[in-house]
Amino acid sequence: MKLKLAFISIAILITTILAGCEPLLVLDPKGPQAETTANVIWLSIITMAIIVIVVIVLLTIMLVKYRASKQSEDYEPPHIEGNPIVEAIIIGIPILIVAFLSIVSVKSTYEVETVPEGYENQEPLVIYASSSDWKWHFSYPEQDIETLNYVFLPTNRPVEFRLYSYGPITSFWIPQLAGQKYAMADMVTKINIVAETPGDYAGRNANFSGEGFAENTFTATALAPSEFDKWVEEIHATAEPLTEEQFDKLLEPGHLGQMTFTGTHLDFRPAPEGEHSGHNHGDSAEDHDNHEEHEDHEEHENHENHDEHSGH
């Protein structure tokens, strides 16, 4: 019967999540951002499960009670118009649920878009993460080093990733640390991350970007600040400097392993932010772009008050 099927489906969904031998990445957070989203996801799963169960129970009752084989031959179902009270209930309850989840949504979205609570006072470590077909380049302007396809983060320090792309739109994603954000060619987007537990975390581009998309991955390694500093020193001692010529080669489509350089490509190939933004319009010092969507990404990509966007 129908209900068997429905219960099987629910059972598959929930038990596998609960009793899976390894926790699912998204639900196994290692930082406050991912933890917020994991909590929101659990909350929404529970709320939604209640709705699904109510619908299935109601359906089962209807099917069991009102099936033709249970009724007498001459039973004539009545003509019933809608009832205002019933309809008020079936409108009202969903509205309440949606209102509740709306609050959750807005609140949690603000939370994951800002520096996590308790870390506001620390100066964030800025790392530029740029994608090219099909690699990730990580530039540490402060430390003056650049890595390819792997990134080291100090634990318990806010990290601000600034994302952009040399090519198609990509989506920067370390499931255990934070949700995704797009990296695009003509602007810089930002994502705030704090890693609280040392470890290696899988990261990838989640947005389809062509042939090499499946292997467009990287590793994010969180380690104690002292070890992080040691790592930086080590690189300065051992790695070669990154030249423009070499960087151009790195940009060519293909897959490369992990690489390390001193210096960053930002020196000769600045990120598309501020005066280098794709939406910076040469001669006009004042940007009168009034399109609303456009305005919205500008809002948080350029906190550094580049004057050309002051026209909003």
């Binding site: 939406h279 319009h281 040469g282 009168h288 772009d289 399109h291 969507e293």
Partner: peptide, 16 residues
């Protein structure tokens, strides 16, 4: 029109 307003300032190296 919506696209026009969006791209109005996207003059690149061309004239306005």
């Amino acid at each position: 029109f919506a696209s026009y307003f969006t791209l109005e300032n996207g003059i690149g190296n061309g004239p306005s």
